[in-house]
C-alpha cells in the first residue's frame, strides 16, 4: 500500500499536526484521551461532578447546622424534656432560627436524596427498578422539602 504521507511505524498521525517539528524532533505520541475534533461531544454535562462537590460543600455546612441543632434540642436546657409547642413557638419567633431550620431542611434533604440516589444506582441492577426507586425518592424529597418550608413560613404561634 503506497501512501504519500510517511508515518513512523506504530505511531498514528496526530490530529491536524505533523509528527515532527522543531520542538518534537522525535515522534510525538498523542495523549490517549486527548480531545480532538473527532471526539464526540459529551451529552452528560457536569452533573455528577456538581453533585460530588455539593455533597462536600453541603456536608461542611450541615456539620455546623445539625450538630448545633442536636446540642440545642437534646443537650441544653433539660434536653428533649423541654420540647413542645411552646418551645417551637419561642424559637421560630426569631428569623435567625427560621433561616437556620430552613437551610438545614433544604441542605439535609438534598444531601440525603443525592446520597440515596447513589445507593439506588449502586444496588438496583435493572433499569426499571432504578427508575421507580428514583421516582419514589424524588417525589418523597420534593414533598418533604415543600411541606417543611410551608410549615416554617406559615407557622402561627396563636393557632389556638
Amino acid at each position: 500500500m503506497a501512501t504519500t504521507e510517511s508515518t513512523a511505524a506504530g505511531v498514528g498521525p496526530v490530529e491536524g499536526g505533523s509528527l515532527y517539528d522543531v520542538d518534537h524532533p522525535a515522534p510525538f505520541i498523542e495523549a490517549p484521551r486527548k480531545r480532538t475534533k473527532k471526539t464526540p461531544k459529551s451529552t452528560r454535562g457536569n452533573f455528577e461532578m456538581a453533585a460530588w462537590l455539593f455533597m462536600r460543600l453541603s456536608g461542611v455546612v450541615l456539620v455546623v447546622l445539625v450538630l448545633g441543632h442536636l446540642l440545642i434540642q437534646l443537650v441544653l436546657d433539660g434536653g428533649v424534656s423541654k420540647i413542645g409547642f411552646a418551645f417551637v413557638a419561642g424559637r421560630w419567633a426569631s428569623p435567625f432560627w427560621q433561616v437556620w431550620d430552613l437551610l438545614m431542611l433544604w441542605l439535609a434533604m438534598l444531601h440525603g436524596a443525592n446520597g440515596l440516589r447513589t445507593v439506588v444506582n449502586d444496588y438496583a441492577e435493572r433499569a426499571n427498578t432504578r427508575l421507580w426507586l428514583k421516582g419514589l425518592l424524588y417525589t418523597a424529597t420534593v414533598f418533604t422539602i415543600l411541606l417543611g418550608t410551608l410549615v416554617i413560613f406559615t407557622f402561627d404561634p396563636n393557632i389556638r
Binding site: G84, G112, G115, T144, G148, I159
Partner: peptide, 27 residues
C-alpha cells in the same frame, strides 16, 4: 448511617409539621 439518618429526616419533618395542625397534636 447516611441511609438511616435520611429515613429519620422524613419522619422528623412530618412530626414537626404537626405544629401546623394543633399544639395538642404536636405535644
Amino acid at each position: 448511617t447516611g441511609v438511616l439518618i435520611f429515613f429519620f429526616l422524613f419522619v422528623h419533618v412530618l412530626d414537626t409539621a404537626l405544629v401546623r395542625v394543633s399544639p395538642e397534636d404536636y405535644d
